[in-house]
C-alpha cells in the first residue's frame, strides 16, 4: 500500500462516494476517469444525483480523465498542493472535457484522515480594524482658488495657454501640453448631463471610513462654456437617478442630455461638498 503525506492513496479515492455531496450534483452526469499511474485507475459515474466508483483498466469511454501521480493526487485532496499549480508544473493533466472535470471538483467534502474526524477545523482568526490618521490637506494656490469659488457659488475652471482646454477641478499644469495653466474662467454652473454611473456597491470613502448610501449616481456634467471631454464630476440627486438622460456626440450624431443645475449647500466652507449635488433643471 502506498502512502503520501501519511495517507493511503487508495483510501482517499475509495472515500469519494462517502464524501459525495448529492445535493450539489443534481445537474451533473457523466463518467470521469482517474489515472493515478502505479496506484491504479478508477471510473466515477455520476447521474441522477447518485455516484458509483469502480476500478477500471480502460478509461477511453470517459468524458474526461485526470492523469497524475498518486502523491500529487493525495496532496490536492488534503489541500497541501494546489491543482492549478500542479497543472502548471505538468504534474497533472486532464484529457477530454477539462471543464466537465472542473465542475465535479466541488462535489466532494474534504478528505479527513482516519482518526482525525473529531478534530475541529482550525478557527481562522480575522481582525476588523479601521486605520485612521488625521490629515491636514493643503489646497495649494490653484485648488484653493477653485474651492474658494465654490464658497461664492462659482465654478471656476483653469485654461491651458497652449491648447485652451479647461480643467475643473483645476490642475497646476496641462498634462498634454506640459505647461502651467494660467488663465481662469468661470463656467456653468448649469450644464448638460454627459455621463452617469449608477453605483450599487459603494467602496468606503477613504476620507471617513464610512460607506456611502447606495444607489447613488456619479455624474459627469458638461458645464456651460465647456466642450468635448471637459466634464465636471459630481453627484446626482439620488431621487432623480431614473429621470435623467445621458447626452453624447458619437460620430457626429448628437444626442442631448438632461439639463442639470447645482444645488448649493446652505453652509459653504470652500470644499467640494459646497455643491450638495446636481439636479434636473426644470
Amino acid at each position: 500500500m502506498t502512502t503520501y503525506f501519511g495517507v493511503n492513496v487508495v483510501d482517499v479515492i475509495e472515500s469519494l462516494p462517502a464524501r459525495f455531496r448529492e445535493e450539489a450534483a443534481a445537474d451533473i452526469s457523466g463518467s470521469f476517469g482517474y489515472d493515478l499511474e502505479d496506484a491504479g485507475r478508477w471510473r466515477l459515474t455520476i447521474g441522477g444525483g447518485g455516484l458509483t466508483l469502480t476500478p477500471a483498466d480502460v478509461l477511453d469511454d470517459c468524458q474526461a480523465v485526470l492523469i497524475t501521480d498518486p502523491q500529487t493526487f493525495v496532496g490536492i485532496q488534503l489541500g497541501k498542493i494546489d491543482a492549478a499549480e500542479a497543472m502548471g508544473l505538468q504534474k497533472l493533466s486532464v484529457t477530454g472535457d477539462r471543464r466537465a472535470f472542473g465542475s465535479i471538483a466541488g462535489l466532494f467534502q474534504k478528505y479527513v484522515p482516519p482518526g482525525q474526524e473529531t478534530l475541529s477545523e482550525v478557527e481562522l482568526v480575522v481582525l476588523k480594524q479601521t486605520i485612521s490618521v488625521g490629515q491636514n490637506f493643503a489646497t495649494g494656490p490653484v485648488m484653493g482658488r477653485f474651492l474658494k469659488g465654490l464658497k461664492e457659488r462659482k465654478i471656476l475652471a483653469i485654461r491651458c495657454p497652449v491648447c485652451g482646454r479647461r480643467q475643473s477641478p483645476p490642475r497646476e499644469i496641462c498634462a498634454v501640453c506640459r505647461v502651467r495653466n494660467t488663465e481662469w474662467v468661470e463656467v456653468g454652473p448649469k450644464g448638460e448631463m454627459r455621463m452617469l454611473e449608477y453605483v450599487y456597491y459603494a467602496s468606503p470613502d477613504p476620507l471617513t471610513g464610512d460607506t456611502r448610501e447606495t444607489p447613488y449616481g456619479a455624474i459627469g456634467v458638461l458645464l456651460d462654456g465647456c466642450q468635448d471631454e471637459e466634464v465636471f464630476w459630481h453627484l446626482l440627486n439620488p431621487a432623480q437617478l431614473d429621470q435623467v438622460q445621458m447626452g453624447s456626440v458619437i460620430n457626429g450624431r448628437v444626442r442631448k442630455g438632461s439639463r442639470l443645475r447645482p444645488v448649493w449647500a446652505q453652509k459653504r466652507t470652500g470644499s467640494i461638498d459646497d455643491i450638495q449635488y446636481f439636479e434636473l433643471d426644470t
Binding site: N136, F137, A138, T139, G140, P141, V142, M143, R171, E172
Partner: peptide, 8 residues
C-alpha cells in the same frame, strides 16, 4: 508647507 500640495 501649508501653502502647497504635493503636486506643487
Amino acid at each position: 508647507k501649508w501653502h502647497e500640495r504635493f503636486q506643487g
